[in-house]
């Protein structure tokens, strides 16, 4: 079976996200002053051959831990779509 596995990676909450800050400034310039905070992360989808959704999720987690995310600065969530 081929599963689509989604890995969402975000900068750790305690870290300054300069990219998010720049986007927040852009939104304010647009007139969307109601937006009070922006964090920018990554959304990575993987096509995974696996016997079960659990196995696919495990492979996604392994990919995230070893390469896709850096735990020093980011956290991630893995979902099988």
């Amino acid at each position: 079976m081929s599963y689509t596995v989604q890995v969402v990676i975000m900068p750790l909450k305690e870290l300054l996200d300069p990219q998010g800050k720049a986007v927040l400034g852009g939104l304010a310039n647009l007139g969307l002053g109601a937006v009070t905070d922006v964090r920018v992360g990554k959304n990575i989808t993987l096509q995974v051959d696996a016997a079960s959704p659990e196995e696919a999720k495990g492979i996604g987690e392994q990919a995230a831990k070893q390469l896709l995310a850096n735990a020093v600065m980011e956290y991630f969530e893995v979902t099988v779509l």
Binding site: D17, P18, Q19, N70
Partner: peptide, 8 residues
């Protein structure tokens, strides 16, 4: 780790 520069 090395993060994006503070002043973007």
């Amino acid at each position: 780790a090395l993060l994006r520069n503070e002043r973007q």
